[in-house]
Simulated scan of single mutants.
Amino acid sequence: MKKIGIIALMLVMQNMFAQTNRFVYQVTMKLDSTNRNDIKTENAYLDISPEKSLFYAENRIKRDSVMSKAVQSGGGPKSVRSQMESLKSNINYTVEKDKKALTTAYKDRLGRDTYLYEEDRPLNWKILSETTTIGEYKVQKAETDFAGRKWTAWFTTDLPYQDGPYKFSGLPGLIVKVEDSKGDYSFDLMKNYKIAELPNITQRGPGNIIKVKRKDYVKQQEKFRKDPVSFMTQGAPQPPRRGGDGGPGGPGGGANQAEMRKRMEERLKEETKTNNNPIELQ
């Protein structure tokens, strides 16, 4: 009986450690360098399993859920448009860290396609002696220079994960808070709980997943910022032309297409104009 009890306890302990932990961070962003009073705030998840971790926007998983329910109920994108509008996010990327391979993979959607690259810049932390308390955790200070910004992090050994939000990891505990010296970006741990397993972050919409080197992703990103409309429409299938006036749906169709394109151009240009302060400057 004693052996059975020990085995049962081991199974319970194994199950506990096999669970996925979700850490919810509040992400604060100043995306427009010309208007520093415009502060964007939203939540993001850091889901940690024994094999890997995922960092992504809370609204991303909510959008996927809304679309999944719409498909199951027979509805289409139009039926959930208002819900999707309310779940827009400024965190359009996902970061996946593989614990065994010690790799950090970054995914971001540019135009119709999603670009994937493996981070090739190591994080070199300087751990300082300064300590304090954030929430319920005793934390210690660390600093690093990464991607053109100087970052200060506070980590806790109370949570035995050498991980953190975004691409940050490699400290002797979980990062509870990390912010850059300019005050443009901040990640603050709000709460954590257990979930059954890592979610399946699916590819949205048309387009492909394109694996590239980081330097090639940076080139594509620069092209998108300079001319988002051309980037969005490159390689996109052209709608069929029908009707006497050469547009979809007959007379006036061409004019409708031109108006739609004009609205898209204005929206993309405005979004690009006000998103001029990226998290990575180099």
Rank of each mutant, 00 (worst) to 15 (best):
I6N: 12
I6R: 13
A8E: 11
L11W: 14
F23Q: 03
V27K: 06
M29H: 06
K30L: 10
N37F: 00
N37L: 04
I39S: 07
T41Y: 12
E42Q: 14
D47M: 07
E51G: 02
K52L: 09
E58H: 06
R60V: 02
R60G: 06
R63V: 00
R63D: 01
R63W: 02
A70M: 13
Q72Y: 04
Q72C: 00
K78C: 02
S79P: 08
R81P: 02
S82D: 14
M84H: 01
L87H: 09
L87P: 12
I91C: 05
N92Y: 06
N92R: 12
A101P: 03
T103W: 02
A105F: 07
K107M: 08
D108K: 04
D108C: 03
T114K: 03
T114Q: 09
Y115R: 11
N124C: 03
E143W: 01
A147P: 02
W154T: 10
W154Y: 15
F155W: 05
F155V: 08
T156P: 14
D158S: 15
D158T: 01
D163P: 12
K167P: 07
L171P: 00
L174H: 10
I175F: 14
S181M: 07
D184I: 02
L189A: 05
L189K: 08
I195C: 04
A196G: 10
A196C: 03
L198S: 12
I201M: 12
I201F: 08
R204I: 03
K213M: 02
K213P: 09
Y217H: 09
Y217I: 14
R225P: 05
S230V: 02
A236I: 09
P237Q: 07
P239T: 07
P240N: 08
G247C: 07
G247S: 04
G249R: 07
G250L: 13
G250S: 10
A255G: 03
N256K: 13
A258W: 01
E259T: 11
K262L: 11
M264N: 01
K269W: 00
K269V: 03
E271F: 01
T272N: 06
T274V: 13
N275D: 14
P278Y: 11
L281G: 04
L281T: 08
